[in-house]
């Protein structure tokens, strides 16, 4: 399964990069969303995958049972999910202000051709 998820990570990164390089503002933002998802999944998979054993301490015990998932990457990703939402909201509004009906992300005075 780790191999499969690694391929998903690669796929998400690839799509994110392609969208970032396109010149339409909406695509760029969608690329950002995909990029943060890809990075979160990367961190999650890098710790190794364990099925159905959340890092919880059962009632009455002092420590979790052996072989639970790694809690640290989960804590990091939790933070990252929320932060990337904040960044996304800001980027969306900023783009709305900046580009309005401008069709491209190049400086306004240049011709709309890719270089």
């Amino acid at each position: 399964m780790e191999i499969l998820t690694s391929i998903v990570v690669g796929g998400l990164f690839g799509s994110a990069i392609y969208l970032l390089l396109s010149r339409t503002p909406v695509k760029l933002i969608i690329g950002l969303v995909l990029l943060s998802n890809a990075i979160n999944l990367l961190i999650f998979v890098a710790a190794g995958l364990t099925r159905g054993k959340p890092p919880l301490i059962p009632a009455g015990a002092l420590r979790p049972v052996a072989g639970v998932s790694d809690p640290l990457p989960q804590a990091l990703i939790l933070t990252a999910i929320v932060i990337s939402f904040g960044v996304l909201a800001f980027a969306l509004v900023l783009f709305r202000q900046a580009f309005g009906q401008e069709p491209s992300t190049s400086k306004p005075d240049t011709e709309s051709t890719c270089t």
């Binding site: 780790e2 990570v9 690669g10 990164f13 690839g14 799509s15 990367l42 998979v45 790694d70 640290l72």
Partner: peptide
Amino acid sequence: LVAVAGGGLMTLLLLIALTVQRGS
């Protein structure tokens, strides 16, 4: 091409990372 290279690189990175060390 850039996208495929970037995606492939990240997959490779992840697989190698899993080979080197699992878990924090």
